[in-house]
Design a binder for these strands. Structure first.
Lengths: 338, 338
DNA sequence: CCTGGCACTCTGCGCGTGCGAGTGCCAGAC
DNA sequence: GTCTGGCACTCGCACGCGCAGAGTGCCAGG
């Protein structure tokens, strides 16, 4: 177990390194933080911390920098979440309030997060599977061609073309529309399959094929995971990354374009609060020198999607976590209102 | 006027510089291209070209590199568009064919362009103003609340909430829906305003307010220019940009995030064929060291949107132009089919 | 008008050096 | 036992130097 002072030393190292981007030595530490001990003592503590794997030196006779393990300890034990100041909160609210539709909410959220944290922001669109149906609309585009439009409680709209096995009358269509909506409107997506199971039986034999086709298209739409879209922004902040550009930045940009990777990344975080994944804790190796701070957000009490930021492991964790949490909270409010 | 040989020298300089990324000298030129003259002669030609502003030297006693003006001449007079090879064409077609909806078409196009050109790809969603209406749907979500759904011939769907000044019966709604569609379905967006002008008069006094509200929301949706969305991809290719990273890449990333800037950029290109804007020809100064190659594409013969790539001024213009043109052609085909 | 030759000018690179920051260890003080 | 001051040591980095190589401009002659 590390003594209290050694933890303080670690905290000081993390803070200084995050601030200066340079390896921090024992002398500088004692000067900037009132630890009440001499550099020599700090050196001993540093040796111990290095032994345990919390810090490392880039090369002999240079200062120390935190390892992933060191950041992990810092985040878990040594630092809390820094709350946003009232003016900041007001700014967030103002910025989000002008949004006109879902796309706009997401776009504004991305910009806001990127500005606030000066890092790359990632916002997942409210997920279909966890939200509820507001309305299902069916439009006859041709005798045997129907457009299915699904509207969710978060304002998202999905549409699909359905080619019917047989022509389908306007009356039958209206009937199906009415029955469908009376059953699923206001219900959660996960409940829909069982709710519509026996619907084809209510129709005449001629129409059953078409009804089944429409229903299965609807169910497909509900589960289709590639529809878990997301928006990213603030990539210009990557240029503040470090000194050795091309090598660091390239894999990150590549990873950011692989939406699948990002979705998996956000999906892995099960914690109800703010989740931090540091360096090699990220499965994707392009993100091995980055940390991901994420949190769920939702229109009600429940999380329907995630948002977060991607930045260098050397980041201001308390501030970033505070910003991410605050933005998630206000986005939730906005979604609940609309 | 420049002699034929001097133009050949310029062409050779551009080709070599694009290939090697290094200033090209007179000796190397005569070795790699059979110009039939000695280095000394080439030097004289170079001096003349420099005098005219087509090439420049980064510092005394280094080779020459083309200026923006030099690239311009190269693109206009010295090089054509390099057509794609048959295998490449087939690959493009295969890649685009699997798309399931409009989002997917656009996403695939972006990936494809980025891979093909190894640069940053930008694809504008088919623009509303130039396409036609397939269907307008009205849904009563509450007595005085209507959802307006607009479906375009390119498969795009826009929805808007409308708060009515007075409750609106289901019968009136159906009436409006029918009248509206019979007038605008299949018509161009630009024609819609005059087509619906007198619609309110067909309704009873009680409903006229609501009808007008719905119509004006529809018209707003049609012209709303911020709905000109676009998708970008291949930003990782920026890392191949040059040696002096942070300074070059940062403004480009920033410009790419300003969708307004990009839309303006694409919009400016009026040429019916492939348009190339080189370096300082781009209004936005973040893009002063990049070239933009763009072209319109559309489902019919007519262009409904633009797509293109952003890359360093030192790029393979013939190849890039060929790729951009080919992709636009096939995307047009795909859109026409669906 | 082209060519070969020549003198000149830079940049980039490899090398050695000195400086400074930082470390590890040890003996002594509290 | 724990902390402290002192000391020798180790590197990395910035600096200055010189050299080679590539490229140029110019000139006189074919």
């Amino acid at each position: 177990m590390l003594s209290e002072r050694r933890l303080q030393v670690l905290r000081a190292i993390v803070q200084d390194y995050v601030g200066t981007e340079e390896p921090v030595g024992s002398k500088a530490l004692t000067e900037r933080h009132s630890l009440g001990v001499s550099p020599a003592t700090v050196r001993n503590d540093m040796a111990a911390l290095e032994e345990e794997g919390y810090i490392a030196q880039p090369h002999t006779s240079a200062g120390r920098i935190p390892t992933d393990k060191g950041y992990r300890l810092f985040v878990d034990k040594l630092a809390g979440v820094k709350p946003m100041s009232p003016p900041e909160r007001r700014a967030i609210q103002n910025f989000l309030e002008g949004a006109v539709d879902l796309d706009d909410v997401v776009a504004r959220t991305v910009r806001l997060l990127a500005q606030l944290t000066r890092q790359v922001a990632v916002v997942q669109y409210p997920s279909l599977t966890r939200s509820t149906v507001r309305h299902v609309e069916l439009l006859a585009l041709a005798p045997a061609r129907v457009m299915l439009v699904l509207i969710t409680d978060t304002g998202r709209v999905e549409q699909r073309m359905v080619d019917c096995p047989a022509p389908f009358g306007e009356a039958s269509l209206a009937d199906l529309r009415a029955r469908l909506n009376s059953r699923v409107a206001g219900r959660r997506f996960t409940d829909v399959p069982t709710l519509v199971e026996d619907l084809p039986e209510a129709f005449e034999a001629d129409d059953r094929g078409t009804v089944s086709t429409v229903l299965s298209t609807l169910l497909e739409t509900l589960v289709e995971e590639n529809e878990e879209r997301l928006m990213i922004g603030g990539t210009a902040n990557l240029t503040r990354f470090g000194h050795d550009f091309p090598l660091t930045i390239r894999p990150v940009l590549e990873a950011l374009e692989e939406q699948v990777v990002l979705l998996k990344l956000l999906g892995e975080a099960k914690d109800p609060g703010v989740t931090v994944r540091i360096g090699h804790e990220n499965a994707h190796e392009g993100l091995n020198s980055t940390s991901v701070v994420s949190v769920g957000y939702g229109s009600g009490g429940e999380a329907v999607a995630k948002l977060g930021v991607v930045g260098p492991t050397r980041m201001d964790y308390p501030g970033t976590m505070g910003a991410v949490r605050a933005v998630a909270r206000y986005v939730g409010q906005i979604l609940a209102e609309s």
